[in-house]
Amino acid sequence: MNEHFKTPLIEAKGLVRTYEVRQGMFGRATPVRAVDGIDLKVMPGETLGIVGESGSGKSTLGRMLLGIDPPQEGQALFEGKPMPKLATPEWRALRAKMQFVYQDPLAALDRRLTIAEQIGEPLAIHNLVPKPHRETRVAELMSAVGLRPDQAGRYPHELSGGQRQRAVIARALASRPKLLVCDEPVSALDVSIQAQVVNMLRDLQEKNHIAMVFISHDLKVVRNIADRVAVMYLGRIVEEASSDVIFKTPLHPYTKALVSSVPVPGKLLQGRVILQGEPPNPANRPSGCAFHPRCPLAADICRTSVPQLLSVADGRTAACHMVTRAEASVAA
């Protein structure tokens, strides 16, 4: 079926989020655009990866997709319908279908409750499973994420980091969501354990046809879990393409820099292009293309005119004055 005729599970239209930020200890509060006009779509069962440096607005965008952080401009649509207002009964009903998984599982769990109690919580809150069957459902969920039955009575601090994250994911799955927004779900874990959790997420997703927004600054993980990837810089998407092409033939200079900073095992750092300069600060947005102070290709036009996110090839968009359709077709 043609993608264009299907309704996206979630769609963002021109999302903007501004925070008041104080500069220094006594400075005046100035508005800062953390997310600055984002359009995106996620189809049912699809995984969209979101990458970018610290402060680029990934987490803010993730919260806005779920309606936890209301946008000042634009809107998020779930199954084609506008997101209800935060904390209304309609929003709560919808929340059962959309779940959030955070980076820090210890902070996401209640240390006074056993993990079985916490995994069962959403079943009770949304009254999804009659009480007598809850225990069975909790056992199912635990086994789905690879926790042993004897771990049901453990408290969060009695589990390893990887096991805690499994418990958080089991709880997120309890309400049979259609969408999971995972914000750096494996960043705090050892590489060996990261791989366990990533595989598990992929299996669960395929089996239950869950769509996923996977936020991470680790390109290697995103490459192996996402179908499509959006690269963010200072609150905007600067390039979007399928995961198969975006890391192989990055078009935007920022994506190129991100790809080149990924360590290759067994290879020395020498000879690689290292992106210079600090991660961007939205309180200090450069004129024109926000990337221009760090961009090796920056020309005069980049300092004055903001490049628009344009289609540069089939299913590929980029926001850069120097990336044209012709160049994109050579790369592809």
Partner: peptide, 12 residues
Amino acid sequence: AIPRLDGPRERL
């Protein structure tokens, strides 16, 4: 266990 950036999408 280190995921690869090049090559096809793979199980870790």
